[in-house]
């Protein structure tokens, strides 16, 4: 196939137009799924900020394996969410009396997004913490 500069540009333009629309739909769908996941976990209750810690890399070297950890002392239940993954719920955690209310794991992130932890405390209240993680497009490593 012969590609002149002009039709390469045209193709590039076409690619842009084609992708813009689905991306915005995908965005809205991800936001909806996220809102629904949060509502299901809290039953619509108010969510406070803080009181729990979330550890994530600022920049993930590879979105396929991203180390994340949280500490929510006194939490009964925790949900770990990835705001823009195809399914935002990563995992639910249930903690017994001997637990310290913490966990670390490694997760997949489909692009730059927020990692969110919501904890249900012993008194039934909810609190959350959120951190943005940049997922880079690697050079040869990625």
């Amino acid at each position: 196939m012969n590609i002149s500069r002009r039709n390469a540009l045209a193709l590039g333009g076409a690619a842009l137009t084609v992708t813009l629309v689905p991306v915005s739909f995908a965005q809205a769908a991800a936001d909806d799924a996220m809102a629904q996941a949060v509502a299901e976990f809290t039953g619509g209750a108010d969510i406070a900020e803080g009181g729990i810690e979330l550890t994530t890399p600022e920049i993930a070297e590879n979105g396929n394996t991203v180390p994340v950890g949280f500490s929510a002392p006194g939490a009964k239940r925790v949900v770990l969410l990835a705001s823009k993954n195809p399914g935002p719920v990563v995992s639910f955690f249930t903690f017994g009396a001997l637990s310290a209310g913490d966990a670390s794991t490694r997760i997949r992130l489909a692009g730059t997004q927020d990692v969110v932890v919501i904890a249900e405390m012993a008194d039934g209240s909810y609190t959350q913490v959120s951190k943005a993680v940049k997922v880079t497009i690697g050079g040869c490593g990625g």
Binding site: V90, T94, F95
Partner: peptide, 15 residues
């Protein structure tokens, strides 16, 4: 016999 932690995994946990 007493549960310390239980994780229900829904997806996105790495290989």
């Amino acid at each position: 016999g007493e549960e310390v932690i239980k994780v229900d995994l829904h997806g996105s946990v790495s290989t």
